[in-house]
Simulated assay, not measured.
Amino acid sequence: MNKDQVEGKLQDIGGKIQEEAGKVVGSDKQQAKGLANQVEGKTQEKVGDLKEAIKDATN
């Protein structure tokens, strides 16, 4: 695992927590921010996956 994969996963998890907290308190704004963080985290995780694949292919 590389830095992008780890940070992306953590951001995704944080986004899920934020989304659920938004649901609990009834805040559409927090739910939306949580979903945005999830998307950003998953994107960063995929970038990390791609970097790993390139690294593996060149070694």
Rank of each mutant, 00 (worst) to 15 (best):
M1L: 09
N2W: 01
N2M: 03
N2Y: 03
K3A: 05
K3I: 05
K3H: 07
D4A: 10
D4L: 07
D4W: 02
Q5S: 09
Q5T: 14
Q5M: 12
Q5L: 08
E7T: 14
E7I: 12
G8V: 04
K9L: 10
K9E: 13
K9V: 04
L10C: 08
L10T: 13
Q11V: 07
Q11T: 11
D12R: 11
D12M: 12
G14R: 10
G14F: 06
G14M: 13
G15M: 09
G15K: 10
G15R: 09
I17D: 08
I17R: 02
I17N: 03
I17G: 02
Q18G: 05
Q18K: 12
Q18E: 15
E19N: 04
E19Y: 06
E20M: 07
E20I: 06
E20W: 02
A21E: 14
A21F: 08
A21G: 04
G22A: 04
G22K: 05
K23I: 11
K23Q: 11
V24E: 12
V24I: 15
V24S: 07
V25W: 00
G26Y: 02
G26P: 03
G26C: 02
S27C: 00
D28H: 12
D28N: 15
D28K: 15
Q30T: 13
Q30S: 13
Q30R: 13
Q31R: 13
Q31K: 12
A32C: 05
K33W: 09
K33P: 01
K33Y: 10
K33A: 13
G34I: 01
G34D: 02
G34N: 00
L35G: 10
L35Y: 09
L35H: 12
L35T: 14
L35M: 13
A36F: 08
A36T: 15
A36Q: 15
Q38M: 07
Q38K: 06
V39L: 10
V39I: 14
G41L: 00
K42V: 07
T43A: 12
T43D: 05
T43R: 09
Q44Y: 01
Q44H: 03
E45A: 12
K46M: 14
K46Q: 15
K46E: 15
K46L: 15
K46Y: 12
V47C: 11
V47K: 15
G48D: 00
G48Q: 01
D49Q: 14
D49W: 04
D49A: 13
L50W: 05
L50Y: 07
K51C: 02
K51T: 04
E52P: 01
E52H: 11
E52F: 08
E52M: 14
E52A: 14
A53Y: 03
A53F: 02
I54L: 08
I54Q: 05
I54S: 07
K55P: 06
K55L: 10
K55R: 10
K55A: 11
D56M: 05
A57P: 05
A57V: 00
T58W: 01
T58F: 01
N59C: 06
